[in-house]
Nucleic acid binder design. Structure first.
Lengths: 326, 326
DNA sequence: TCTATTAATGTAACCGGTTACACACAGTAT
DNA sequence: ATACTGTGTGTAACCGGTTACATTAATAGA
């Protein structure tokens, strides 16, 4: 590997001069600059970022911690984050925590040891006391961690209301909800949005709410149970799209016609909602935008820029498709 | 940040001794070891991996370059890679190249500057002459790059044959193929597998082959064209699952009943093949296993272990579902 | 003419682990 | 008593950029 000293020796200047050329700092005579640049080119010298990191205590690197990149929501997010940070010459460490706090902490430690400049994290479990020891900016994504930490999320409560109202408007009289895991904030918000709307019109019934795991199979089982116990259910709001797909699968198996006999709404707006038959009505989050906004915010924090807004909540949009057509 | 010197000072030993304790190297008296360990614990000292990297010229870090993490094939791969390497205390840089060679090279340069210990890359464009300047192990994933480079892939040719033969066995007499981009090796292999089988039984017709982009919309258009020009097509083998979904969507719009009038087979075995109606018959690749194998191989290369096999080809499996039911 | 000031460059310490080498001392073989 | 081996520890150079500080020359201002 060619080092700065090699370049300096070749040109006959000191390493300081080469460094100055490289960083456009201090005074360098135009002639010298050109010679140095030529030598750098010729010798194919690439500065060693590890050495630089060591001295500067920053690495042009960020960490992205998600529960599982396999969950269709996260690749979009990861892509957005990578696009924005890569543009600013940063590189992204990808970490899968499975939502387990030990893994999250292990990753945080590792990332700190590698001098990451900041971390974006999707977590339900981390508390301020875990995070206080890390001296780099942290932004929570999708799920707020703590009021002291900046976060980017979407309006889950309102989205759930929109979904539930839409089912009412479609003429549904018995609307069930398959909710996400209770320890996930957005699942609680969505549940609350549903509850408030059905209560408003006097349709609240706690037996029509079943929690599941944000996964197809688990939602399928939940839907089975619901539809078996209450065959007259005519609308189901699922806590996310993946679960809504499970609902449609279950309904199909039980001989329900969607949307004629049963209408289904999901949440997230993942791409695959469109491939199921019938296409899925859903509350769509601007996932890419959420990721890119969070990433841009993190870069600002890293550069020490003031943050205009510590908490950003994106609005969601109801996309009406076949699964709720009247 | 607590440094080794802080710990050394506190205990009253030299940094060398602390380092020996940390690395279990050289001689350290049992008493000393305990005192040092206690101080490390108490002071919450975490060794700085950047400093270590600088000296050791390796970073416990690898790069993973994929075209686009949004493509449903890659999250699984990424997850496998991260699982295996994380276990060995490595961290993964995620890079999205969009299949563009400039981006790929930019990432390679960046990764080299960060002293990555190795790279896993999915690419169609990189040539040995681009790669020769990088002095860390590289493994090609999914698509072989060059005979000199180790790679992990699956038997695309045979898989395509299986798919096509299956359509024949289902009684199809006019079988079309929507192929992937010509510059992608696996697309060429799949095309060839198809061609060879239809030729064998005298059904080859070049008009029944249309190239598309490994994407839903593009495949939808291709299927439209095929079915419009040749309404008696009764079987379509799509180059991947995403395209197969496009085919089913197109068939639906044109009023074809799948599988009664038209049978469809995909390739890849992505999870979402099961959510479409009818569920998709596909040639399934062991994606997770491919990723974990490649990662394990890379770790071996990094540790200087001999590689038993430079080229690993996984067998694929035909999963028969509703979309080809007779 | 003498002192500031700016331009241009070099020297060396620094970031924080790692390790070659030196040294000291114990125990053992000769 | 001498030489040798094994144990335990410290000193300082090293990895490769960065930058505070020093130095020198040249130009400007008094």
């Amino acid at each position: 590997m060619v080092t700065m000293r090699d370049v300096a020796k070749r040109v006959g200047v000191s390493v300081a001069t080469v460094s100055r050329v490289l960083n456009d700092s201090g005074y360098v005579k135009e002639d010298t600059r050109k010679t140095v640049l030529a030598a750098i080119e010729e010798m194919n010298f690439k500065p060693n970022s590890v050495a630089r990191s060591l001295f500067k205590k920053q690495s042009k690197t960020i960490g992205l911690i998600v529960p599982d990149i396999n969950n269709p929501f996260f690749p979009q997010l990861a892509r957005a984050v990578e696009d924005v940070t890569s543009e600013a010459d940063f590189t992204v460490f990808l970490c899968n925590s499975d939502g387990k706090i030990e893994k999250e902490i292990r990753y945080f430690d590792r990332l700190q040891q590698k001098y990451v400049d900041g971390v974006l994290v999707v977590s339900n479990t981390l508390k301020p006391e875990h995070l206080s020891q890390y001296h780099f900016p942290i932004i929570a994504l999708d799920r707020p961690l703590d009021s002291s930490l900046p976060y980017v999320t979407c309006n889950n409560y309102e989205g759930a209301q929109k979904a539930t109202r839409h089912l009412l408007e479609c003429g549904c009289g018995k609307i069930a909800h398959i909710s996400g895991p209770e320890n996930i904030a957005n699942a609680r918000d969505r549940l609350q949005g549903y509850k408030d709307v059905v209560s408003e019109v006097g349709l609240y019934d706690e037996n029509l709410i079943i929690p599941a795991e944000y996964q197809i199979e688990s939602a399928k089982r939940a839907a089975f149970k619901l539809l078996t116990n209450y065959p007259d259910i005519d609308g189901i709001f699922a806590g996310n799209d993946v679960m809504a797909i499970g609902v449609i699968k279950a309904a199909e198996l039980l001989g329900y016609k969607v949307p004629e006999q049963l209408k289904v709404v999901g949440f997230d707006g993942i791409e695959f909602g469109d491939i199921i038959t019938p296409e899925l009505t859903t509350v769509s989050q601007p996932v890419y935008q959420m990721g890119s906004t969070a990433a841009a915010m993190l870069l600002d924090l890293i550069e020490g820029k003031p943050i205009h807004q510590k908490e950003i909540t994106f609005q969601v949009e109801l996309l009406v498709k076949r699964s709720t057509q009247t």
